[in-house]
C-alpha cells in the first residue's frame, strides 16, 4: 500500500513540475511536446490507480492524437508565442490564488484517499461488481457498465464525437475556392 501511495505521489509531483514548465515555456512547439509528456505521465498515474482502461485511452488519445492535432495547428499558426515585455499581471494570479485557497479549504471534507468505506464505494459500485457477472457475464466490469448499464450515456458520448467531427468539417473541412477572399496576410 505504502509503495503505491509513494509512486502515486511522486508521479503527481512530476505532473506538477511539468505543469510549471508548461506555464513558463514560450516556444509553443516545445509546449506541445511537454504536454505530450504530461499526458503520458498521467497515463502512468491512472495505471497506478488501477484504472487500466483509462490509462489505455489517455496514452492513445492524450499522447497520440491530441499532440498530433496541436502540431498540425502549429504548422499553420506558427510556433512562437508573442513575447511582449509586459508588466507582471496581478489579476490572473489573484483570481487563481483565491480560487485555489477556497478549494484547499474544501479539502477538509473530502474522504480519505483509498479507504474502502468512502461514500463513492458503498452505493452503486458494489451492485455493479456483484451483479455484473450474473446479469451480463462480461468479466470486464468497465465494459459492462459502459455498454450495458449506462448504454444511453455512451450513446450520447458517441454522438458528441460524431458532432465534433461534423463541426470541424464545417469549420475547416473544405478550402474556400474564392480567390478574392485570399488576403496577402494568409501566406506567412
Amino acid at each position: 500500500m505504502v509503495l503505491e501511495h509513494l509512486i502515486d505521489i511522486s508521479l503527481l509531483v512530476f505532473l506538477a513540475v511539468i505543469s510549471v514548465a508548461l506555464l513558463r515555456i514560450k516556444d509553443l512547439f516545445a509546449a506541445v511536446m511537454i504536454f505530450g509528456i504530461y499526458s503520458l505521465t498521467s497515463a502512468s498515474l491512472f495505471m497506478v490507480l488501477a484504472a487500466a482502461d483509462v490509462a489505455f485511452t489517455e496514452a492513445a488519445v492524450g499522447a497520440g492524437i491530441s499532440t498530433i492535432l496541436m502540431l498540425a495547428t502549429l504548422s499553420i499558426t506558427g510556433r512562437e508565442e508573442k513575447t511582449i515585455e509586459r508588466k507582471f499581471k496581478l489579476l490572473p494570479l489573484l483570481i487563481v490564488s483565491i480560487t485555489g485557497a477556497v478549494l484547499l479549504y474544501g479539502i477538509r471534507d473530502l474522504p480519505p484517499f483509498g479507504d474502502a468505506g468512502n461514500p463513492a464505494q458503498v452505493h452503486v459500485a458494489p451492485r455493479y461488481i456483484e451483479q455484473s457477472p450474473v446479469e451480463t457475464d462480461v468479466p470486464n466490469i468497465v465494459t459492462s457498465v459502459l455498454a450495458s448499464y449506462r448504454g444511453f450515456d455512451t450513446l450520447g458520448e458517441v454522438v458528441v464525437i460524431f458532432t465534433a467531427g461534423l463541426g470541424v468539417a464545417l469549420i475547416i473541412g473544405r478550402r474556400r475556392r474564392l480567390p478574392s477572399k485570399k488576403e496577402a496576410s494568409s501566406h506567412e
Binding site: 487500466a52 482502461d53 489505455f56 485511452t57 462480461v138 468479466p139 470486464n140 468497465v142 465494459t143
Partner: peptide, 9 residues
C-alpha cells in the same frame, strides 16, 4: 469484454 479495452480505445 474480457480484458481492458473497448470501442473507444
Amino acid at each position: 469484454d474480457f480484458g481492458p479495452g473497448g470501442g473507444f480505445q
